[in-house]
Amino acid sequence: MDIDGTRALVTGGGGGLGRHISLALARAGADVAVTWLSRDGEARKVCAEIEALGRRAMAVQMDITDAAAIETAVRTVAEAWHGLDILVNNAGRGRPTLPGEDSPRVVPFGDIAALTPELYDHLMAINMRGPFLAARAAAPWLRASGRGRIVNIGSTIGFSPRDAGLSFAMAKAGAIPLTRYLAATLAPEVLVNCVAPGLIEGTGLTGAAEQTYIDSWRDKAILNRTTAPEDVAAQVLALVQSTSTTGQTVVVDGGISFN
């Protein structure tokens, strides 16, 4: 499918992987709205890059854990641009900061007591409930567009949990059945797929990671490297351009898991 002239919304599109996805869509001809929670400066920089490519851009504040905020953000974009064609559920957190706290919680490996109900619920709200609510809010516009596409961003860690990422892995693993559910529910008007990256250096998810942890991912990859964000963005673009692929999860991880 030619996506020239389409209207896309990328959650968490202001930094890290989201920026690469947003620019890949813009280079292919899409207008792109990016959401932000607390770093509007980064979102506006990405918008400037999108506009420099000759496409429309919009930065919209949205809390992925707040159903009403999601509804408002999606409606703001769709009404401003008279529709919506593409949703990329990219926003996610591995070590979230609970409301009222100043620093992220860390769950040591094997310490099930540290994974409190509050932390578990928050991880699920960000990484699984939020993408579902965004898809639910966008569904009427995506169905009406004639070119509706959703791409969820999962993670290789959802296939093979490792070390302190166990709590994050449970949340991100949910992207796979969520993708299949949405693909079946929204067919044939909307195609829904998932990209599951390995560890990407230089993003918010890896910013606090120790070098030994990063090296462990590189050592286990048969390509002896971490995941390039450009490769993930290219796969997202390929999926939104496809006309016969839905319900699928594509792993981009340098050869750690052959799912």
Rank of each mutant, 00 (worst) to 15 (best):
R39F: 06
R39W: 07
R39E: 08
R39H: 08
D40I: 13
D40P: 10
D40R: 15
G41L: 07
G41W: 06
G41Y: 09
G41T: 03
E42Q: 15
E42C: 09
A43F: 13
A43C: 11
R44Q: 15
R44P: 12
R44C: 10
V46M: 08
V46H: 07
C47W: 10
A48H: 14
E49M: 15
E49C: 09
I50V: 15
I50C: 01
E51N: 09
E51L: 11
A52P: 05
A52G: 15
L53T: 14
L53F: 01
G54M: 11
G54S: 12
G54K: 08
R55G: 06
R55E: 05
R55D: 05
R56L: 09
A57T: 13
A57H: 04
A57L: 07
A57Q: 06
A57W: 06
M58S: 12
M58T: 12
M58I: 12
M58K: 14
M58Q: 15
A59Y: 12
A59K: 08
A59T: 13
A59E: 05
A59N: 06
V60M: 01
V60Y: 00
V60L: 01
V60P: 00
V60I: 09
V60H: 01
V60T: 05
Q61T: 09
Q61A: 12
Q61I: 07
M62Q: 13
D63H: 06
I64P: 02
I64F: 07
I64G: 02
I64Q: 06
D66I: 07
D66H: 04
D66R: 06
A67T: 04
A67H: 04
A67W: 02
A68S: 02
A68M: 01
A68Q: 02
A69F: 08
I70K: 00
I70V: 08
E71D: 10
E71L: 03
E71A: 09
E71H: 06
T72A: 05
T72S: 04
T72H: 03
A73K: 03
V74M: 00
V74F: 00
V74I: 09
V74D: 00
